[in-house]
Amino acid sequence: MSQNPHALFLQLIAKARVEGLSSSERDQLSAHLQDCTFCSEHAHQTDRALRSLRATAIPLPAGLAERTQFRVRLRAQELREREPKRRLLWTICGMSWALGVATAPYVWQAFEWIGQRFGAPKLVWELGFGLWWTIPAVVAAVVILLQNAKQTDETEWPQGK
């Protein structure tokens, strides 16, 4: 049990402001506050502090919204200009993938034929096929990653303060 006889009620005073009280807690607290000057003063102090906090005025910098709107519009313009390029890149990637899938059986046969023609071990021409399959995808991924990195750099916190 707490040494301070008011401790429970001080906790309830804080709880009432932070997360609210159950009806029994509320009744218990209000009954106590009617009799206890110490806790009552504590409750008033808490309310005063919160009222002061709520009443604190923050002056806004002049033209903050206008400057921000201007910057946002500029950025939106940039993004709009970049959009066709991005779309083209994704279209090429998609087409390349579709073509790759469609021609894979033929290319596999071609690699097999070349391998047999030159007496290359199976593992070598299979590896060749694997590279042929993966290199375009890797190149596309690198291009996209580079583009994203560039975009991130541009939008990165500019002042670096």
Partner: peptide, 28 residues
């Protein structure tokens, strides 16, 4: 969040100047 709020409330109460900004106390 709750524990920060309780501590913050305590810190706010201790930090606030003794004289109120205005008006009497009341429920928050």
């Amino acid at each position: 969040v709750k524990s920060r709020l309780y501590r913050g409330l305590e810190a706010l109460k201790s930090a606030m100047p003794a004289s109120p900004l205005g008006g009497q106390g009341g429920a928050a």
